[in-house]
Design a protein around this nucleic acid. Structure first.
Lengths: 340, 340
DNA sequence: GCGCTGCTCTACATCGTTGTATGCTTCGGG
DNA sequence: CCCGAAGCATACAACGATGTAGAGCAGCGC
């Protein structure tokens, strides 16, 4: 019911000490008599004082908050990534501010110079629409930045990514080893030379080469946005075109789940007639029907690493190191959709 | 590369005006000569000035940030809710700070008095572990608070909720109308008198009464956490116990999806042998196999309303109104799992 | 020519904390 | 008995913005 905020001044008065002593208690300054400390702590408890973080931030020049820019939380991969980042940040005493860009180029760029950058100590940045041409936009950034994903390599920032090519190669080989030869891919981005789509396609083709299977463009289905719906549409197109298929590689799980859905609808048995593998290992893949084999991309590791790199840039000692690129481990998770 | 932040003082010097004039320009104070304004704006652009939000917050006593406390972002319902809240807040010039409580009682309580409350203008609070006994904890809150969900009613806060009983009634009737009589429920919380589980069970029983179907406890399957995995386990128990069933009502979508998964595994046809309906209308329900009928709870409306109520408390005129309870509309979404 | 009103801008104090510099004890060593 | 070093506490000046009060200066009516 008290209408006025309790400040350190109030606590100081109550505990009969100076304002700064209260500050020292709050910040665990070592040289404080036990008796003084407890008097102050009592006063704090009695008045229900909490530090005003705005004032502290202003004074310290740091906010203890980091930004996390992702396309959308309703995309499960990013929701799970956000979850992991929040946990990792919390463990290090940081607060995460999430910004959604909707995977729209302008909004992704707007985030870089946005107002929020002024009360955020750094940014974990996961663009989906930007490309290598936008590297320039990154170099104007004057705060700690950690890049995620596969849109931009060699930019002026730390970068956490995964072995997309190798992982896609492994996913494809997983199908090949199970005797599949007509392996469709869903989610290609025609004409794009960068990004997850391009890299994963590389891995796919490399695996085909390695297995001596000729590449057939008819097996490649486009899907601009990697959603369940676009995956479903792409799968439907392949079936409607009567392309011969015995396996599907969804470039991410949402696509694969969409495909799975269409296959079920059309009474195509999975993995009997067509085996399916996805990419990302989102929660849902363990509970679809059938469960979906996929690539586990080390999400937790990526989140932890990103937060650590950012923190090092923020408070040293890594402050002035050259930019680092960290590649997270992946693994193939075999489930029902490729079993037998 | 400039190592020192650009402040209003710098802009003022460059534009040859007082510091306050710069502030006035930034804040769209009306009485400024056009020439002055443009000179200041030029200086701002040239120096790349952005306001220091910490300082502004300190001075204004408001941060423009609101908290959103949810159990976990990896639960799709809450990820989608967070998405909606962020959008609604953005449209009103607010920034959202997400906190995850893990649905753990202590952490839910900790959020109420947490340090973050001091730099947040209000809180949208969606507890899952708290009960009516915790109403007292809410009354110590001295900041604007909007409660979400069904754990606490009549508390000292605005509350946005939905007609759980009516919606569950409608979902059950939806099954009854399709000729189902042996309707199992998954997700009950035995002995709990409050919360979504209890309310939705009420709706279920009321529908049975209305239809003249006797209530059979054997049809009720417990599931403490409402995850896919617990839904799957509950469904498996029902099948293993050889309970006669022709329909399943999952008290949320995750449970229903888990159940769907087990049914598929065991080659039980849906909706042929068993019809399934869920609750929440998460994205995924439109892409499962078969697609899942469910209750659409008006998530967007809930988010929008919550943000609006909070904003009114923050800046009046609704500041001192009595606490309001808003009930969002729901609708039944019919998909394949109950078709025919 | 006087006072008034309305526009435009400025000086100053202030929001709640923390860094710096410094003062006052007390204690042990020479 | 003096001195330096530690231990403990304080005063003061920032951090960068905004609210308040009021100062100039037109233009207007009388």
């Amino acid at each position: 019911m008290s209408e006025t905020r309790v400040t350190m001044r109030d606590v100081a008065a109550r505990a009969q000490v100076s304002l700064k002593t209260v500050s020292n208690v709050v910040n665990n300054y070592p040289y404080i008599k036990a008796s003084t400390r407890s008097r102050v702590e009592e006063a704090i408890a009695e008045l229900g004082f909490t530090v005003n973080v705005s004032a502290r931030n202003l004074r310290r020049g740091r906010s203890g908050m980091i930004g996390l820019a992702v396309p959308e939380l309703s995309l499960p991969y990013f929701a799970e990534l956000a979850d992991s980042v929040i946990r990792a940040a919390e463990a290090r005493g940081l607060t995460v501010l999430i910004e959604q860009t909707g995977a729209v180029r302008e909004r992704e760029l707007a985030v870089l110079g946005g107002e929020r950058r002024s009360f955020t100590d750094g940014l974990i940045y996961s663009p989906l629409a930007l490309g290598p041409d936008d590297v320039g936009e990154l170099s104007v950034v004057d705060y700690p930045l950690v890049l995620l994903g596969e849109r931009i390599f060699g930019g002026p920032a730390d970068h956490v990514t995964m072995s997309n090519v190798e992982a896609a190669y492994a996913a494809t080989m997983h199908l090949v080893e199970r005797g599949r030869r007509r392996i469709a891919v869903i989610g290609a981005h025609e004409g794009e030379a960068v990004g997850s789509a391009a890299l994963r396609m590389q891995g796919y083709r490399r695996a085909l080469d390695h297995a001596g299977i000729p590449f057939d463009p008819a097996l490649v289905a486009e899907a601009g946005l990697w959603h369940r719906s676009t995956g479903a549409e792409a799968m439907a197109r392949l079936l409607d075109d009567r392309v011969e298929i015995d396996a599907v590689f969804g470039l991410n799980d949402a696509l694969a789940l969409g495909a799975l859905h269409v296959l079920h609808d059309r009474r195509v048995s999975v993995p009997g007639q067509i085996a399916v593998i996805g990419f990302d290992d989102i929660d849902e893949t363990a509970y679809s029907s059938p469960t979906l084999s996929t690539v586990h991309p080390g999400r937790e590791e990526i989140a932890r690493t990103a937060v650590d790199l950012l923190l090092q840039r923020i408070e040293g000692p890594g402050k002035d190191q050259p930019f680092r690129e960290v590649i997270a481990d992946f693994s193939i998770v075999e489930r029902q959709s490729t079993a037998g």
